[in-house]
Design a protein around this nucleic acid. Structure first.
Length: 260
DNA sequence: ATCTATTCCTGGCTGC
DNA sequence: TGCAGCCAGGAATAGA
C-alpha cells in the first residue's frame, strides 16, 4: 500500500529515467484505470515529451510538453521500467528508450491525462515535511473527528495513509480515537510525523503485501513498524499488548497503555 | 461545513 | 481437497 515514502522512493527512481523521454505509444488495457482522465488520453499522451516527474502527496505527476500525466497507485499499483507484461498490466507506455508499465491487481489506482494539474491534486493539503507546527495545529483546530480520520484526510495533510498514521500516533502517544487534541499533543504529533516519514523514506518505504519500486526492489521500513501489523505483540515501549480496532473504516493499531 | 458510511476491486486467507 | 465468504484499504461519493 504505497503512501508518501513509497511514492517518494518510486519517483526518485523514475525521475532520472523518464525526464526528457518521448512517449511514442500509450495503451490502456483496462477502462477502469482511466476513470479520472480527461477524454482520449491515448491520443493526448502519444508524442508527448516528459519534462519532469514529481511526487504530490501520494500522486506521481509527470509534467509533459502539453498537459500532465498523473498516476495514483491506489492499493496495489506499480510503475515498472522495462518490465514484461503481466495479467495485471493496465497501461503500457512505449518510450523512445525503454517502456513504462502500470500494473494494478485491484484497480484502485488510476492513470490520467489532463490539460492542467488535476483538481484532486490541486486541492491536496500541505506536505507533512513542509508544514509548520503552527499550521498543523491550525488545521486540526475546531475539528471534532477522531485524529486518525483527520490525518487520513488528504486535504488537511497529504501523503499519510493507514500505516504512517498509526505509526505517527504511537510515537506521539496519542490515541487514534482522540478528538480535539491539545496543542501540546499536536506538538508531539508534528515531531512524530516528521520522524516517521523521514525514517521511512531513508529505508525506501515499507514493503507490505507486494510493494516494490520501479526496479523491483523492496523497502525496509516494515521491520521498524512499532504498531502497524503487530496486534497482540508486545509494545516496544511498555511491553503491553498492541491492540487492533476498526476506526474510520480502517484497521487501527495502537498501544492502549502508551496512547491515552 | 463537517462527519460518517458505502462503494469500488480481487488475490489470498479462513473455516467448514 | 474444494469452495464460499470475508478481508485489506485510498478516495470518490452519498447521506446525515
Amino acid at each position: 500500500m504505497p503512501e508518501l515514502p513509497e511514492v517518494e522512493t518510486i519517483v526518485r527512481a523514475l525521475a532520472p529515467r523518464l525526464t526528457r523521454r518521448h512517449i511514442v505509444s500509450a495503451e490502456f488495457l483496462s477502462p477502469l484505470v482511466v476513470r479520472h482522465s480527461e477524454p482520449d488520453p491515448e491520443i493526448h499522451l502519444t508524442g508527448r515529451v516528459i519534462e519532469s516527474v514529481e511526487r504530490r502527496g501520494k500522486f506521481v505527476v509527470a509534467r509533459l510538453d502539453r498537459g500532465f500525466l498523473t498516476v495514483h497507485l491506489g492499493m496495489t499499483g506499480k510503475l515498472l521500467l522495462d518490465a514484461a507484461r503481466t495479467p495485471y498490466t493496465r497501461a503500457v507506455f512505449g518510450l523512445d528508450r525503454g517502456s513504462l508499465l502500470f500494473d494494478d491487481v485491484r484497480q484502485f489506482g488510476s492513470v490520467e491525462w489532463s490539460e492542467g494539474l488535476p483538481a484532486r491534486v490541486r486541492k491536496l493539503g500541505p506536505e507533512p515535511l513542509d508544514i509548520s507546527f503552527e499550521d498543523l495545529a491550525a488545521a486540526l483546530r475546531r475539528r471534532n473527528a477522531p485524529v486518525k480520520a483527520l490525518l487520513l484526510n488528504q486535504t488537511i495533510l497529504r501523503g499519510l495513509g493507514n500505516i504512517y498514521v498509526d505509526e505517527s500516533l504511537f510515537r506521539a502517544r496519542i490515541r487514534p480515537s482522540a478528538r480535539a487534541v491539545s496543542p501540546a499533543r499536536i506538538r508531539r504529533l508534528h515531531t512524530a510525523i516528521r520522524e516517521v516519514i523521514g525514517e521511512a523514506i531513508a529505508h525506501r518505504g515499507s514493503s507490505i503485501s507486494d510493494y516494490v519500486d520501479p526496479c523491483g526492489e523492496e523497502g525496509g521500513f516494515q521491520q521498524m513498524h512499532r504498531v502497524y501489523g503487530r496486534e497482540g505483540e508486545a509494545c516496544v515501549a511498555c511491553g503491553g499488548a498492541i491492540r487492533r480496532i476498526v476506526l474510520a473504516q480502517r484497521g487501527t493499531h495502537f498501544c492502549p497503555r502508551c496512547q491515552r
